[in-house]
Nucleic acid binder design. Structure first.
Lengths: 362, 362
DNA sequence: AGTCAGCGTGAGAGCGCTCTCATGTCGTGC
DNA sequence: GCACGACATGAGAGCGCTCTCACGCTGACT
């Protein structure tokens, strides 16, 4: 690759001239080389290498109407996004999968009300071929925006599809939150705990709701003692506070299911401060099985979801949506269950399994 | 905005027709409207709104040679990137600043050897106007690639500029690592500690090196007792292991300066396991002042660097590099010191201050 | 009254690529 | 020996935008 240090980047034209063929032929070679005589193909390849030719993406996507990039939109108040390794992990899974498909990842955070405008505009502007959206709360306008813009979108976590009218079924990747919660609570019941409290996430998110439902189901009580339920907002501080509320309202509790590891950590802190031993006095189960779980004191019994894999699945789903032909035979991932009864092959929401990991806290 | 649900997106041409002007005039209005009669401008704006016109970015960047996007390249083994809130925080700062300048953020992780190829190609392909690079280790080929591609680049942390030959001075944002480390160790000295160990980061990174130098300086010994130095690799596990090594090699140590909060947490864990009380038996100081510091048990005395601000500064520096005219009067940030003796106004490395935060661990 | 600067606007040439269609060149079958 | 299809290649028309330049108009100055 003997490129000019700083001259203008070579164009198709230049390569064509050097190889003694037409622009069209060079284009064909650059895009796979089908229908070009081997000898010519080789000559063109050499010219490309010699000039250090790299296709101009703007020109290409101007005509193809494809950008080779997807947006990842994270609509989460700043508190949670990066103190919780959850997003990072998922992002990495996404990044891996996209990189493998030579697709770029555009990261956008929604923080303020006015960000919606900017992002909505951006998504409609055709800068990206599709979008991955995270942790939307109930009234988030983003899904509607994406739909209006006709932008293929995959959600992280089952979206609360209140807003959309006659929209097609949304595509998403989620874990079986309800089942995970059930496993957690059943484990506590199996250890003889009877006054089991729950620290929930914000109840305008389906993941938080589903876990709460799983808790209810496992207890077999549709209306559990309200003193045993507190909202921890999916943050460590929230978990700390929620645990304090719970202890005040129900001093006799003997277990707590925190719907995220971070909240479980907060809860542990409160329990320690109040002199309750874990797990002897109060057993604690978390959810996620990310770093905070293993590093808690004592290490958390928790529900594992393969977060990185979820990210990967989201990306794969979107890529398939964008280009069904390229649907590599990369399917049939272990532990993945497809919701049945849907459209074209593989284009359906994906629910991954949850699994209890027993450590010392319960 | 009464856009067609799914029709082809309107073009300049369409807007021009509706407003009864030429394409050129619409273009002028869309790009600020300078040199267009107010009345006409208004008419065009209405047409734009009516059609829901959004400029096609590919067409635009084809002619302007600008993409309005920058790459953020993170070259860090997976272990650290998202278990440490450091990157997330910095990313957020970057994102904020870029969003304010309507610039997109392309995120790319380097994990494998072959990723370098892909990313190098990408950076040369003119997809982005500039790049922000993080935590490069000594022999990282990325800076050279960026330079060869003529891509404006700002580094996070002072790069080890071994590779580059006659390159211009690299632009970077860093904290005063050496001073931060000095403060940490002086604090320990001030508390009467005499056998102060250090848990370093990987020594092929300047931040780790600089902190170690600060440690040496504060001690006043160019060659401190090697038994008091261990590499913790900037990870929690590494910190745990390093602490164990230190205790084995120098059981009489009475303090440890861990060069990151995560490593300090690991160290705390080992100390707890070995029955050493903190801070009574062993005082511990961390570095970063991110979540892990406040959540440690006991809460960590640590060195604060405003990570998000660093991210913001990196982005600002790059934006200024890309478009000097737009250098808003957003300068003169508190606590920021510019390295003197450089090129055009403001285009110089930035070193932000470090500050000791005293909590309970020392 | 004539000149000319200055401003607002339009015409049109590309930016670098893809893709359709026409053209040319064989090989095959009757 | 001729018609025809298959295949390889080239010519050229855009994709939607920006930007230069030319043009016409107004108003100020000689």
């Amino acid at each position: 690759m003997v490129s000019e240090p700083n001259g203008p980047r070579p164009t198709l034209e230049a390569v064509a001239a050097l190889a003694g063929v037409s622009r069209a032929t060079v284009s064909r070679v650059v895009n796979g080389g089908a229908g070009v005589r081997a000898e010519v193909r080789e000559r063109v390849r050499e010219a490309v290498a010699e000039l250090g030719y790299v296709p101009n993406s703007a020109a290409r996507s101007l005509v193809t109407r494809r950008t080779g990039a997807v947006a990842v939109v994270i609509a989460e108040p700043e508190t949670r996004v990066f103190s919780d390794p959850f997003f990072g992990r998922q992002l990495r899974g996404i990044s891996r999968e996209l990189a493998a498909a030579d697709t770029q990842l555009l990261l956008m955070f929604v923080e303020h009300r006015d960000d919606y405008d900017r992002i909505g505009r951006y998504l409609s502007a055709g800068h990206v071929d599709g979008a991955l959206m995270f942790s939307l709360h109930r009234d988030d306008p983003l899904p509607a925006m994406a739909e209006r813009a006709g932008l293929p979108t995959v959600f992280g976590g089952r979206p609360d599809w209140a807003g959309a009218g006659r929209a097609p079924r949304p595509l998403y990747v989620d874990t079986d939150n309800r089942d995970g919660a059930r496993q957690a609570v059943r484990h506590l019941l199996g250890r003889g705990r009877r006054r089991i409290a729950v620290i929930t996430g914000p109840l305008d998110q389906t993941s938080a709701l589903d876990r709460l439902d799983g808790y209810r189901e496992a207890l077999g009580t549709p209306e559990p003692d309200p003193r045993l339920i507190a909202d921890g907002g999916f943050t460590a501080q929230g978990g700390e506070r929620a645990m304090a509320e719970l202890l005040d309202a129900a001093p006799d509790l003997d277990a707590v299911f925190a719907c995220s590891d971070l909240m479980a950590n907060g809860a542990l802190r409160t329990l320690r401060a109040r002199g309750r031993r874990v797990p002897d006095d109060v057993a604690v189960v978390g959810y996620d099985d990310l770093e905070p779980a293993a590093w808690a004191d004592p290490p958390l019994t928790t529900v594992r979801q393969d977060v990185e894999e979820m990210g990967r699945l989201m990306a794969r789903l979107l890529l398939r949506l964008l280009d069904p032909r390229k649907a590599e035979a990369a399917d049939g991932v272990a532990g993945v269950e497809q919701v049945p009864g849907d459209g074209p092959a593989g284009l359906a929401p994906v629910i991954t399994g949850a699994r209890l990991v027993v450590r010392e806290s319960a």
